[in-house]
Design a binder for these strands. Structure first.
Lengths: 157, 157
DNA sequence: CGCATAATATCAGAGCTCTTATATGTTATT
DNA sequence: AATAACATATAAGAGCTCTGATATTATGCG
């Protein structure tokens, strides 16, 4: 079919495989999974970041942009972009704080809730595939490692 | 200092912690590590993607844009952007293929090689922190899992 | 009370990444 | 040899993510 250059290994092989740098492996795995999620949600035009935001707003209704950023380990500016796109799509609403003049509350709209429900079904399947082939012990090790990496330089109060 | 809303957990706790969805944990870990790398390389104005490209071109001199994309599990368009920025910075050169009229070879420039060397020292330290606290067995499980996730839907020839 | 400090939101600019689309060059089929 | 199929490169547009900067609102301290 196509003659592959034998000196360049495929993604899962050689230095790109299990002997490779953990940093590369992490980067590639996250990229591959992000793409998988976005293709599963392509029909709804929802990105991984938007799915995460919808899920968190659903779990913590009335959350502020700043709190959402802390929760998602992103900058407020980044979250503002994501929230802006979700607002444009009509999936959420921003309400001014009752007494605090600057804070805005975020809440899902009706269509946002319905959208999240449909997205969840698809993503749950992928989440299941993520754990397939892992023993309980291995899964615990992976989870612990991921949390450690994600919170490595978070200042402990 | 600041009064944290007690109903919103921190990144490493509650649903954002070890009981959370693996998909979220993967996303957060990759984001946190990407940021860590880019801050370590801030002085050289090199991004994680650029560091990956430099490393791969160094390992496979004369590689084509298309092969680099396959190697990095990215689209050719994405790699083209990264390579374009590295070229603008003078870290690599594009040479036309001797006989093939379309393919371009990528090679590091002298300054690119020097830059990569300096970046490597910094990133190696972070790579080391990535494995700290993992037993050999756990590290093997993590590596195997990451490779599985990264190559989940790669068509086996 | 008045001002400094901190928190919130937002704009602008850059880089990464995808999809879609186009132009060009190579290989296989007829 | 002509055409179809495939590979390579690249441009345009959208979304995500960061840094840096600015405006507005709260809070704390003199």
């Amino acid at each position: 079919m196509r003659k592959k250059n034998p000196s360049i290994p495929a993604a899962g092989e050689g230095k790109r495989g299990e002997e490779g740098y953990l940093g590369y492996l992490l980067r590639q795995a996250a990229g591959a999974y992000r793409l998988k999620v976005e293709r599963a949600l392509d029909e709804f035009a929802v990105t991984q970041a938007q799915f995460a935001a919808l899920t968190m707003i659903s779990a913590y209704p009335g959350i502020s942009n700043a709190d959402l950023a802390r929760l998602a380990v992103l900058t407020p500016q980044t979250v503002s972009v994501i929230v802006g796109n979700l607002e444009k799509a009509g999936s959420l609403v921003r309400r001014p704080h009752a007494v605090h003049g600057r804070i805005q509350h975020l809440d899902l709209s009706e269509s946002g809730r319905a959208l999240l429900k449909k997205c969840r079904e698809r993503v749950y399947k992928l989440e299941g595939e993520l754990t397939a082939g892992l023993s309980a012990e291995e899964e615990r090790a992976v989870r612990r490692w991921l949390v450690n990496v994600a919170t490595a330089d978070a200042p402990q109060p």
